[in-house]
Design a binder for these strands. Structure first.
Lengths: 353, 353
DNA sequence: ATCGGGCGCTAACCCGATTTAGCAACGGAC
DNA sequence: GTCCGTTGCTAAATCGGGTTAGCGCCCGAT
């Protein structure tokens, strides 16, 4: 159907030189290997006229490199939350002329093994092992065959793999400070986790770290958390239930919700109770999910920098690929990506009594 | 760092046969080419013991096939809406031992050209050209080098490429019928598009087709659309504004919103006006965006079958790959994937006057 | 004894590039 | 005139498989 691809041999013939010479010129090593200007020009012109493009599969076979990286996740591509992570990785890879293989394991270890194998069969130059939610994962043994980076995940056992994560602790501080700066000192309640560092959903690294940051910032200001309700899952209905229950006992001045979906549930409960955001109650949250700008009033939230996370993972991976010798003893550094604050309408000074 | 991969030569040596023989046995052609049981067993055992896995890059070079398909979209991976499309494609491809290259063009034709080229350089066996929103696209010339399928997109000019699309017309009928079945005959208003077929956002195929279906189903029942408001963009704020304006003039009995984000805005406007869903006003919508089950009352909506769309695209693509000769004269069929109704709480019989 | 034919396997070429080793031609020094 | 060093290029091996053509062997038939 399509005309045969132009190969290096075609270019060489058109330029009247050997394949070797054509290869040398096109790989830029012509100068150092004393190819004459004349020949160089002929090769370049021929390649240009024939619209020659090297067959990457062939190069891959010879050099063992494929200009491809594998992006393996539990459910990142799928989940609508972290699509930007892929986008960041995609663009960073593209900047270097690399393509991305995408694979999903859905948490299945066997599937993960198979997927990593398939990627190695295709000679990927590196791997990004991503998790939808920040959490500690068991690093599969099969991964050691190529440079790799953990994205949004921490290794359960120490490994030489670097990890890229959002700076959740600083995010927690940031959320707390927003309230402090608006003048809040009393009646600050947490919805989703806390008050203790063990009162968190299982496996949620983000919960613990956000909590640490919140308590740190409030503590420095001499402010105490007035109360906290955990949610078994960070979904709107649990945020709604937790807030409704809270309102039965007390009237808060401000809520720190552990994510935007919880905040959405909280909005509904506040609305039911006839309380206005932010006039009666200020709300700050985390993630910057799209709904944060859809609900009314729009929600102030500390954003998960998905795009930057993806980009950073690729950058770190390329540093890893560039590294000469993998040192099995080395413990991978942890790169923290800042979580920016998105200031919107849900915060006001506390109501005068 | 990692020990060298086991190659076919290693297996052959371990089994005490030639590479040819090993290749024949492992590709299953041993029987027809009269390899003895004994040798066959030796080769299989050696391959097993050495954990031999064929190098797909090498196979690709020889056979011109890469067991890989390219998924090129404007912003599908990115956008949180259609991640399931990728998931469906991913799983369907995996079922056949294929991997997915992901690429995004962001609507840039030059980027698209480059991306398709890069994919061809990697010998992809087929391409899926996907669009975030259903729309007519200009099919790039570069695509003809491999079998391809349009996903969620229609070609502007006739092409031999098949297309996979959601069945929006039937979805429109379905939405209308839900209201009819609940007893609604009057006061049905459209938010987002209509009443005329030209009253739609630019380039939106979905709007036109949904509208066709809605008018068809209502028409068959002898019911007239009471009114309609277009929205320049299908976002919550426009749905809110359109509904608020509508409520200034009239009190509707039911709303057909053209997507869930518009419906979310409509909910807010109804709430502001003190109207209850579904007691005062029933609401039906399209897409089954996650918020449809987050807002209260939960929203009845006709779902975009993203997962199925992705799967179907891959299935159609494989049929295309299997096809012997590409017939340039053929006009690609259009495959319509049903949009299922998600019945929730937002519909009730019209209030008794 | 010779020939023909089926059986069981392998040598050798191919895919499209990179890379190593080395060859021919030329010029200058002795 | 010989030797040596440069210059400018190429033959050939290589990556890891798939595939074609055909080789040796044994057996039965002539």
């Amino acid at each position: 159907m399509s005309p045969r691809r132009v190969t290096l041999a075609d270019v060489a013939k058109a330029a009247g030189v050997s394949r070797t010479t054509a290869s040398l010129v096109l790989s830029g090593r012509g100068r150092e290997l004393r190819i004459s200007q004349d020949v160089e020009q002929r090769v370049l012109r021929a390649a240009d006229e024939l619209e020659y493009r090297p067959n990457i599969v062939s190069v891959g076979l010879r050099t063992g490199t494929s200009r491809t990286i594998g992006f393996v996740s539990d459910t990142v591509a799928t989940s609508r939350l972290a699509g930007d992570m892929i986008k960041g990785a995609l663009e960073a890879a593209r900047d270097r002329g690399f393509m991305l293989f995408i694979g999903e394991t859905e948490g299945d270890a066997e599937l993960e093994r198979l997927l990593l194998q398939t990627m190695h069969d295709r000679q990927v130059d590196g791997l990004i092992l991503a998790s939808m939610f920040t959490r500690a994962i068991k690093v599969p043994k099969a991964i050691t065959a190529a440079p790799a980076v953990l994205l949004n995940a921490l290794p359960k056992q120490p490994t030489p793999l670097p990890a890229v994560l959002p700076d959740e602790v600083e995010a927690g501080r940031r959320a707390a400070r927003v309230l402090l700066e608006a003048g809040h000192r009393d009646g600050i309640h947490l919805i989703g986790a806390g008050p203790g560092l063990r009162d968190v959903p299982p496996e949620s690294v983000a919960a613990v770290e956000r909590l640490v940051g919140i308590r740190e910032a409030l503590g420095e200001a001499g402010v105490k958390v007035a109360g906290a309700r955990t949610c078994p899952d960070w979904q709107p209905e649990y945020g709604f239930a937790a807030t409704r229950d809270l309102l039965h006992t007390i009237r808060p001045r401000a809520l720190i919700c552990f994510n935007d979906r919880i905040a959405m549930g909280a909005y509904q409960a506040l609305d039911d109770a006839g309380l206005k955001v932010p006039g009666d109650v200020s709300v700050v949250s985390f993630d910057d999910h799209p709904i944060a700008s859809w609900i009314r009033p729009t929600l102030t939230t500390v954003a998960l920098p998905h795009y930057e996370l993806g980009r950073t993972a690729v950058d770190v991976l390329f540093a890893e690929i560039g590294r000469e010798h993998a040192d099995a003893e080395r413990v991978g550094e942890v790169h923290r990506v800042p979580m920016p604050l998105r200031s919107r309408e849900s915060i006001a000074p506390p109501p005068a009594d």
